[in-house]
Measured scan of single mutants.
Amino acid sequence: LRTVEMKKGPTDSLGISIAGGVGSPLGDVPIFIAMMHPTGVAAQTQKLRVGDRIVTICGTSTEGMTHTQAVNLLKNASGSIEMQV
């Protein structure tokens, strides 16, 4: 596991798309980074990659989380965001 910290302002975009989660079209698979926009906050860290499994978001485990719950957690996060992948 590695921990990645990002700074995100209220109008900034992380610039990632995620897939997976409980009840997702892919089945109940762990949440992972499906796409990254090169100008997004996540890409700027140069520490995240497409395919990385997201284990925690700001200390909250993604295990058993639906896709929608994970998306909302990421969208609503601002300031210092910590992810374990």
Results as ranks from 00 to 15, higher is better:
Leu1Lys: 07
Arg2Cys: 11
Arg2Thr: 12
Arg2Met: 13
Thr3Arg: 11
Met6Phe: 11
Met6Leu: 11
Met6Thr: 03
Lys7Cys: 13
Lys7Gly: 04
Lys7Pro: 03
Gly9Met: 08
Gly9Pro: 06
Pro10Arg: 10
Pro10Gly: 09
Pro10Lys: 12
Pro10Val: 11
Thr11Cys: 10
Thr11Leu: 13
Asp12Gly: 12
Ser13Tyr: 13
Ser13Leu: 13
Gly15Cys: 01
Gly15Gln: 00
Gly15Asn: 03
Gly15Asp: 06
Ile16Ser: 00
Ile16Cys: 02
Ile16Trp: 00
Ile16Leu: 14
Ile18Pro: 02
Ala19Ile: 09
Ala19Thr: 08
Gly20Glu: 05
Gly20Trp: 03
Gly20Lys: 02
Gly21Ser: 04
Gly21Pro: 02
Ser24Ile: 00
Pro25Trp: 04
Pro25Glu: 13
Pro25Gln: 08
Pro25Asn: 08
Leu26Met: 13
Leu26Gly: 11
Gly27Thr: 04
Gly27Ile: 06
Asp28Phe: 09
Asp28Cys: 04
Val29Thr: 10
Pro30Thr: 01
Pro30Gly: 09
Pro30Leu: 00
Ile31Met: 12
Phe32Pro: 06
Phe32Asn: 05
Phe32Thr: 14
Phe32Val: 09
Phe32Leu: 05
Ile33Tyr: 02
Ala34Phe: 06
Met35Thr: 15
Met35Ala: 15
Met35Ile: 09
Met36Ile: 14
Met36Phe: 01
His37Gly: 04
His37Phe: 07
Pro38Glu: 10
Thr39Leu: 13
Thr39His: 13
Thr39Tyr: 11
Gly40Val: 02
Gly40Lys: 06
Val41Thr: 10
Ala43Tyr: 12
Ala43Met: 08
Ala43Gln: 08
Gln44Gly: 09
Thr45Trp: 02
Thr45Tyr: 05
Thr45Gly: 06
Gln46Pro: 04
Gln46Ile: 03
Gln46Met: 11
Leu48Asp: 08
Leu48Tyr: 01
Leu48Gln: 02
Arg49Leu: 10
Val50Met: 06
Val50Glu: 09
Val50Cys: 09
Gly51His: 05
Asp52Ala: 04
Arg53Tyr: 11
Ile54Asn: 03
Ile54Pro: 04
Thr56Met: 08
Thr56Cys: 07
Thr56Asn: 11
Thr56Gly: 09
Ile57Leu: 10
Ile57Lys: 02
Cys58Leu: 07
Gly59Trp: 04
Gly59Arg: 05
Gly59Met: 03
Gly59Pro: 02
Gly59Val: 01
Thr60Asn: 11
Thr60Val: 13
Thr60Met: 13
Thr60Asp: 10
Ser61Gln: 09
Ser61His: 10
Glu63His: 12
Glu63Phe: 09
Met65Ala: 03
Thr66Gln: 06
Thr66Cys: 03
His67Met: 12
His67Cys: 15
Thr68Ala: 14
Ala70Asn: 00
Ala70Thr: 01
Ala70Glu: 01
Ala70Gly: 07
Ala70Ser: 04
Val71Arg: 13
Val71Gly: 10
Asn72Gly: 10
Asn72Leu: 08
Asn72His: 13
Leu74Gly: 02
Lys75Ile: 07
Lys75Asn: 15
Asn76Met: 11
Asn76Gln: 13
Asn76Cys: 12
Asn76Leu: 09
Ala77Cys: 14
Ala77Asn: 11
Ala77Gln: 11
Ser78Asn: 14
Gly79Pro: 07
Gly79Lys: 07
Ser80Phe: 09
Ile81Tyr: 01
Glu82Lys: 14
Glu82Met: 10
Met83Phe: 10
Met83Thr: 03
Met83Leu: 15
Gln84Glu: 13
Gln84Leu: 06
Gln84Ile: 10
Val85Pro: 07
Val85Lys: 00
